[in-house]
Amino acid sequence: MAKVLVPLADGCEELEAVTIIDLLRRAGVEVIVAGLKPGVVKASRGVQLVPDVTLDQALADAYDMVVLPGGMPGAAHLKDDVRVVDLLKKMASAGKYTAAICAAPMVLAEAGLLRGKQATSYPGFLDGVPDVTLRAEAVVQDGTVLTSRGPGTAMDFALQLVETLVGRAKREQVETALVRP
């Protein structure tokens, strides 16, 4: 079974976080939700999210993918956390998947993972990042790096994560059950 880590920081975008976690779990993926610090995470619109573990506890395990929800200042907190940046670098060097949506692709850029890649983000968050080819698509996958634009693309992003981890048939099964047009 695929195993995914979703780190959460205060100020994260709740629609993105919950959509990612929910759809991956619907697909049978093991999802570990980790708070940067102990306790409840207060998301950008005031929704309170309860992580499964702290990031320090989560770092004891291995993952097939790390997915970063966006939102501000949540994405900035992720970018400023050396544990998150170091984990992303380790994932990339091991050929594992890294993914980010909205403002969070800036964390991938901070870790050096977007050099020579095609990527997308919430408008403006990757402007001026060298050696990145910016795209306007809802979801962009370049090798083991997946990025997406924002809350409105969260479901498309999560479904692409499902397809990448467990295949097209599972994506179609999850998507059909969601009654997507």
Rank of each mutant, 00 (worst) to 15 (best):
V82S: 15
L113T: 11
L108M: 12
R149A: 02
V140R: 03
T164A: 14
K117E: 07
Y122V: 01
L49P: 04
L114Y: 12
G74K: 10
G143W: 07
E110H: 06
V82F: 00
A104C: 05
K117Q: 10
D56K: 14
A58T: 07
C102R: 01
L55K: 04
D80E: 15
I101D: 11
A119V: 08
G71C: 07
L55T: 03
L126K: 11
G152L: 02
M91P: 04
D81P: 10
K96E: 11
L55M: 08
I101M: 09
K89F: 01
P51F: 03
D131R: 13
G74F: 03
R45F: 05
K89C: 02
R83I: 02
A136R: 14
A99W: 11
G46A: 03
A58G: 08
V53M: 11
P130N: 11
R168M: 01
F157G: 08
D127L: 09
C102V: 04
T133W: 00
A103L: 05
A76Q: 13
Q173D: 13
A136Q: 15
K79V: 00
V129W: 09
M65P: 02
V66Y: 01
D52Y: 10
F157Q: 02
A75Q: 02
F125A: 12
L165S: 04
A58P: 10
L159M: 13
V162P: 10
L126S: 12
G124H: 10
T147I: 03
P73M: 05
D131W: 01
D61P: 00
T164Y: 04
V107S: 01
A94N: 12
L78A: 03
D52W: 09
P151R: 07
A99E: 10
A158N: 09
V84I: 15
G71F: 03
D142Y: 12
Q57K: 13
